[in-house]
Write a protein that binds this DNA or RNA. Structure first.
Length: 868
RNA sequence: GGGCGCUUAGCUCAGCUGGCUAGAGCACCUCCCUUACAAGGAGGGGGCCGGGGGUUCGAGUCCCUCAGCGCCCACCA
């Protein structure tokens, strides 16, 4: 295409980055530039399982960072000719949204209520006063979900706008939300599949419990926090009446004591085998037992087993067949009824703690111990790690409840092995992240607890029949027909029953629980690609298994692992072939940026200040998996790079042959030695960048491209500038034009994944269509144009040019100062390389005469023209 | 306690399968308005590549070990 309008008129006299974001965001939207072609076959597709950001507040700079990484790869694959499946989702399912909806609208979800189609919340502008729980209006779950939709719509719009402004090449027609109808349907369908295959089961068992939210939590959601505590030495009594001293940090669990344990090899306690020990204060007789997990080094070497103080207690309780005497209830307070084992005075003492919090109960029981002289000495303060729910602020308790589980290898070595093998079949980037996956699977100590005693989320899609006494028959759950999904058992009625039989003897009850948010987000591959949905385009078969899962390394144990589990059961497959882990953004003090630390920078401000390309440049400089410092300096460099590209392009395009644009020179022969050498280097660059991208190392591709670009502008353009202006005739100039055209063409493509705006802008000056739909540059075509020219010629010429400039700089003269004569000394091999570039060197250094002399290393002796 | 990662110029970091005098940008110093670019260009100073061993003709790169920092995991009486 070399119509005159390409030659003139499209290149601004003073190129600028101002306004290019909005111009191209609009153009790409209008043209559907990034639309996924639903007719592509699986081998033509590159599918990305995009992380759905949590919609509870605003996007932060960490999002900009990691989503840019994914986008560079999406753009690269698109240019490689792949049809890129790049969806977006909003994670608006779960506790963070539940809290926001409550506070914003002044409502509280109550699944026992029927749906009210005319409901209006008491507050609509987020004006509901905080801390007024009692005045929150209870609403049904369907109403609550509607309010969620209302609340998040604005946020989601803002998220989309920011991602568009950032230049993400997402196909926005593939948008989903984790609480939307399709996600609920797919989530419930998968759950019922698990149930029918036996991958899901319910169990009445001790499980980790958050007393604030009053819900069970999963192992993956735990975190340890260092908390002050104290060893209390309690005086238990041996059969012979002598003391048996036991250290504990949980004296309040004394009424829950069911045994005393020591290590089987511990000679101090071996004589007590078969003995009965009496607990202090409560006078309960408990057996002396032995177990490998008892540590002779800890405390007095013997411990009281309580139901349940920690997970070890659960192990002991289970493996030693001990009774359960729970004293802590779901609300974190002492239960109303003392365990049966406590009799006589012990019951009166227990009465003092009924209904008390754990904290208060501890004080009371410590007083009881002191009063009975059964606390030895003063408590010894210590600090130790305590398990917390990651979103909670009180230590977790262990409470026996009925919960739903999905098998994940935590109780089945064969399954664990199979899941580790799945991990081996996935390429991790960087590779060492695989260790974290394996580490986690090997360390699992139970199946995946997916039921949550919360209100906002995807309901467990089951009902239970009620017997004549009104007790649920859990073993015979009632499941809905697949075509009725999604259902809400709190408002929908199972087949064969009527609404008025709800919660009546002989009737039914809905399962009150919702699924863990990961139980839905582990299905993002299924949700985005319409798994088992009405899918006329056959999307699922075109994208699954996906090529790539990008995500943060902190959620390998949750999102990554749970997605592997679901695909293992549903598809007997890995969900994707590559897992790309990005690091965190650290503030300059090397701390993770977070809202609570108040060190968060608002992304939109950065994009406006530096430009999207500049911010992307900073993001793309962060190596895969590496935590990266937030660095506005890198954004400034990115901005300069973008401006440099504008100006260098303007220069190259200004060399357009008469009568046609520079595009006309794309196929012209490259005859000059230096030009050929530059193209040889460029071909190597294309090879390097391609290999880096194929290994998901976008940062390396950028670094190589940028490095070449500086050589290109500082050395090559300087060397050929005069010749391109036809200083040595039209033929020599034409070679420069042909080389510049090819270099510009390739550089725009190479930079396109990183700097999509400025490259598209420049592309529009001389070419048609979107750059982002162009093929990736072709190294062999460049090599052909370069002939057999050595790439080193340009390198040596650049070094010589630098030496020719030095005397001018040292004499504090302008670089325009003419050199009357100069001698270049260097090795024969290096001199041979620049023989054919000597005229270019003379032009660039304003030298009247250049001579060469053989020597051991490069040096230049130059005579400068006297100052005029 | 186990595992992993990091440690290269004042700062932020490149240095892939070991190979010419260790690189980039920022910052600092000097100079230059040269017709792509002064939000630029040319040049310069600055590094026992965390410490100590080892393999090798040769180690920032491989092996061992120690130290510091960070992350993940762990049964936290």
């Amino acid at each position: 295409m070399n119509t005159p309008d390409h030659a003139e008129g499209r290149i601004p006299a003073k190129p600028t980055l101002d306004g290019i974001e909005s111009r191209w965001v609009d153009q790409w939207r209008t043209d559907d530039t990034y639309a996924f072609d639903r007719s592509a076959t699986r081998d033509e597709v590159f599918a990305i399982d995009t992380p759905p950001p949590t919609v509870s507040g605003s996007l932060h700079v960490g999002h900009v960072f990691s989503y840019t990484h994914t986008d560079t790869i999406a753009r690269y694959q698109r240019m490689r000719g792949k049809d890129v499946f790049y969806p977006m989702g909003w994670d608006d399912n779960g506790l963070p949204t539940e809290r926001r909806v409550q506070n914003y609208f002044g409502v509280r979800c109550d699944p026992s209520l029927p749906y009210d189609p005319d409901f209006e919340p008491p507050a609509t502008e987020g004006t509901f006063p905080k801390g007024s729980d009692k005045r929150q209006v209870p609403v049904s779950r369907p109403n609550f979900i509607e309010l969620c939709d209302r609340l998040v719509v604005e946020d989601e719009k803002a998220f989309e706008n920011l991602f568009r402004l950032l230049g993400l090449s997402v196909d926005w027609s593939l948008l989903y939300a984790t609480i939307d109808e399709r996600s609920r349907r797919i989530s419930q369908r998968s759950f019922l599949n698990h149930l029918s295959r036996g991958d899901a089961y319910q169990l009445q068992a001790p499980s980790l419990w958050d007393v604030t939210f009053q819900t069970a939590v999963a192992q993956a959601e735990l975190e340890d926090r260092e908390r002050p505590s104290a060893y209390h030495t309690l005086r238990f009594t041996r059969p012979d009446g002598s003391d048996l001293l036991i250290d504990t940090t949980r004296p309040e669990l004394l009424p829950a004591c069911v045994a005393v344990v020591a290590h089987p090899d511990d000679e101090r306690y071996q004589p007590l085998e078969g003995a009965t020990i009496t607990t202090p204060v409560y006078g309960v007789e408990v057996p002396m037992v032995f177990h490998e997990l008892a540590d002779p080094e800890k405390g007095t070497g013997t411990a009281m087993i309580c139901t349940f103080g920690d997970l070890t207690d659960v192990t002991w309780w289970r493996e030693l067949n001990l009774p359960a005497r729970p004293v802590i209830g779901r609300n974190g307070r002492f239960v109303d009824e003392a365990p049966d084992a406590i009799q006589g005075e012990g019951r009166e003492r227990y009465a003092e703690v009924i209904g008390k919090t754990i904290h208060t109960g501890r004080e009371i029981i410590v007083e009881q111990l002191q009063a009975a002289d059964q606390l030895v000495g003063e408590p010894k303060p210590i600090t130790h790690p305590v398990k917390f729910y990651e979103k909670g602020d009180k230590p977790l308790e262990i409470i026996t409840t009925r919960q739903w589980y999905i098998r994940n290898g935590g109780r089945d070595d064969d399954l664990a092995k199979a899941l580790i093998d799945r991990g081996e079949a996935i390429a991790f980037h960087p590779d060492y992240m695989r260790g974290r996956y394996r580490n986690w699977v090997e360390g699992l100590n139970g199946d995946w607890l997916i039921s949550r005693q919360r209100f906002f989320g995807v309901p467990i899609p089951l009902w239970y029949p009620l017997d004549a006494e009104g007790e649920p028959v859990y073993d015979e759950p009632l499941a809905p027909a697949a075509e009725l999904l999604p259902i809400d058992p709190s408002t929908d009625v199972p087949d064969g029953y009527t609404a008025d039989q709800r919660n009546k003897p002989g009737g039914f009850m809905g399962d009150p629980d919702v699924m863990d948010t990961w139980a839905t987000s582990s299905l993002t591959p299924q949700i985005a690609a319409l798994w088992a949905e009405d899918d006329p385009d056959g999307l699922w078969a075109r994208v699954y298994p996906y090529d790539m899962r990008p995500q943060g390394h902190d959620i390998i144990r949750t999102w990554l692992f749970s997605t592997v589990v679901r695909s293992h059961f549903e598809e007997d497959s890995v969900p994707w072939h590559n897992a790309c882990l990005s690091g965190w953004i650290l503030d300059p003090d090397r701390k993770k940026m977070s809202k609570s630390k108040g060190n968060v920078v608002v992304p939109i401000d950065l994009l406006e200040q530096y430009g999207s390309d500049a911010v992307r440049y900073w993001a793309a400089s962060g190596r895969p998996g590496t935590d990266t410092a937030f660095d506005e300096g890198q954004m400034k460099i990115g901005r300069r790079l973008a401006i440099k590209l504008l100006n260098a392009s303007k220069f190259a395009l200004g060399m357009a042959p008469a009568g046609g644009g520079l595009a006309a020179a794309l196929d012209a022969p490259v005859t000059e030695a230096l030009d050929q050498s530059m193209l040889a280097q460029l071909a190597s660059l294309v090879d390097d960048a391609t290999a880096a991208f194929d290994g998901y190392d976008y940062a390396r591709a950028l670094e190589r491209t940028e490095s070449f670009f500086w050589t290109f502008t500082d050395d090559y353009i300087e060397l050929v500038k005069n010749r391109a202006y036809a200083s040595r005739g039209d033929e020599a100039a034409a070679s420069a034009h042909a080389a510049l055209a090819r270099a510009l063409d390739s550089l725009l493509r190479l930079f396109a994944p990183f700097l999509p705006f400025v490259t598209e802008e420049i592309w529009s000056w001389w070419r048609d269509g979107s750059l982002h739909r162009q093929p990736w540059p072709n190294a062999s075509a460049l090599r052909t144009a370069a002939g057999d020219a050595p790439a080193e010629r340009l390198t040596v010429a650049g070094q010589v040019l630098s030496e020719l400039r030095r005397p001018k700089t040292e004499a504090k003269l302008s670089l325009r100062t003419p050199i009357t004569s100069a001698t270049i000394t260097d090795t024969a091999a290096r001199l041979a390389l620049i023989t054919d570039a000597i005229d270019d060197l003379a032009d660039a250094s304003v030298a009247a005469e250049l001579q060469t002399a053989e020597g051991s290393e490069l040096s230049v002796a130059a005579e400068l023209a006297p100052e005029s």
